[in-house]
Design a protein around this nucleic acid. Structure first.
Length: 214
DNA sequence: AAGTACCC
DNA sequence: GCGT
């Protein structure tokens, strides 16, 4: 019953596990500015489907902004200063992105969060991200901030061990999840996106994931 | 490896 | 649905 109650809360901090919190609707007021800034990022570094080290095409389309961008190809996962598609540095992180990330982190108890990487994910119907850990960053003392825009999705949030039981959380437009400290290496993922239409993003979900990678 | 296939 |  507690879960049903939580699903209906708005504008509140909802604890998930120690070190992880869902900030319901935290990005609502700034969502249109974020999406406008994203258009300028995409003009330099457009969407692309990366390849896993196993050689499979990821269903989620991605790009990055900030001094470091997350990249996957046949050689592995890494952060790189350069967009491999353009040969140029990733676009600068927009001020609105930095502000959202810092304010969300602070609201979750992580002060002075200054991300140097923003991975942008676009989910269309059927796109998914299987359960994984964010472990390519240098300093696990730095939290992860993940903002949802557009269509809703089911977020899986598990434990440190892959076999730990995962919780399912419905994430809606404007929701922000922050995890760090004891939850920093929690497994997480997104179930296949359902079809739908959102007034601001159309038939997709956009996710902004902020990290201090370097 | 953030993926798939296949097995139990 | 889980592990490999």
């Amino acid at each position: 019953m507690r879960d049903l109650f939580e699903q209906e809360e708005e504008g509140l901090s909802i604890p998930i596990v120690p070190g992880a919190v869902l900030l319901r609707g935290f990005a609502n007021d700034i969502a249109q500015q974020l999406l406008g800034d994203l258009e300028r990022v995409l003009a330099s570094s457009p969407w692309r489907h990366m390849t896993t080290p196993g050689g499979f095409r990821m269903s989620v389309a991605m790009t990055n902004c900030g001094t470091l961008g997350w990249v996957s190809d046949r050689t592995g996962y890494r952060y790189d200063r350069v967009d491999p598609a353009s040969g140029e540095p990733w676009p600068a992180m927009p001020a609105t992105f930095l502000q959202l990330a810092a304010q969300a982190a602070a609201a979750a108890g992580f002060d002075r969060f200054v991300p140097d990487a923003c991975l942008v994910n676009r989910y269309e119907a059927g796109a998914r991200l299987s359960l994984h850990q964010d472990r390519d960053e240098r300093d696990y003392a730095q939290p992860i901030v993940s903002a949802s825009l557009g269509l809703p999705a089911t977020f899986l949030f598990g434990g440190i061990r892959r076999a730990d039981k995962s919780r399912r959380l419905s994430l809606a437009h404007g929701d922000v999840v922050v995890w760090g400290g004891p939850a920093r290496l929690s497994h997480h993922g997104i179930l296949p996106l359902k079809e739908g239409e959102h007034p601001l993003t159309g038939r997709c979900r956009i996710n902004l994931t902020f990290r201090k990678a370097g």
